[in-house]
Simulated scan of single mutants.
Amino acid sequence: MDLRTTFPRSMRVTLEGYVHLARMIDKCRAVLAGTEGEYIYPCPMDDRLMAFAGITAAQFTAAVKQHLNDEGVIQWFRGIATPHAQAELDEWNRMMLSRGPTTPEKQASFDKYRDAVDPSRTDLTSWADLQDLEEGRTVPRRA
């Protein structure tokens, strides 16, 4: 995957019940290929997913390197990730998708990135929405 010419999958894409997993796979593949461009792996969102799953970046990177397709990574993930009740996973997914800036400094960065893409979108409050907006995906207006 060449993230210098294309975007990773949206954080909203779900694999094995987890949001962000598909995006993390795409970014890891790009890092392994040296084609990550401006994307960062592992980033803080990746770290949150790996901590929730009980895995390390080294383990995940080795699995992505070993398995050339999503199905292989998913099988590995299913076998190693800390199991969670569906309600807990659903809550974690909601948290990830609604998570926004947590400090004034992060809010300023968020506003700067948003304003560079579309300053009229002051309705956006989550990093997931901002990523989708930056990458040209449709983001519904929020009330």
Rank of each mutant, 00 (worst) to 15 (best):
G72C: 04
A87V: 11
D2I: 02
T5D: 07
A128L: 01
R78G: 03
Y39G: 06
A53C: 10
A51L: 15
T103F: 03
T122R: 14
P44T: 08
E105N: 14
F77M: 09
T56V: 04
R9T: 04
S10R: 09
P44D: 09
S120T: 15
I25K: 02
D123I: 02
N69I: 11
D47W: 13
A81K: 08
I40R: 12
R99N: 10
L97F: 07
R4E: 08
L89C: 00
S120W: 01
N93D: 06
H20I: 15
D123H: 03
H67Q: 04
R12F: 02
F52V: 11
V13E: 15
A81L: 00
L32E: 04
A108C: 04
T122E: 13
I55K: 01
R4Y: 01
A53I: 03
K106W: 11
D115G: 09
A22M: 02
I25Q: 02
L68H: 15
A58H: 10
Q75N: 13
G34D: 03
A30C: 06
D132T: 10
F60G: 07
P140V: 05
A62M: 09
G79N: 08
D132C: 06
M24W: 00
K112I: 10
M45Q: 13
W127R: 08
A116V: 11
M11D: 13
P44H: 09
D123N: 02
A57V: 14
R121F: 00
Y39C: 02
K65F: 09
I40M: 11
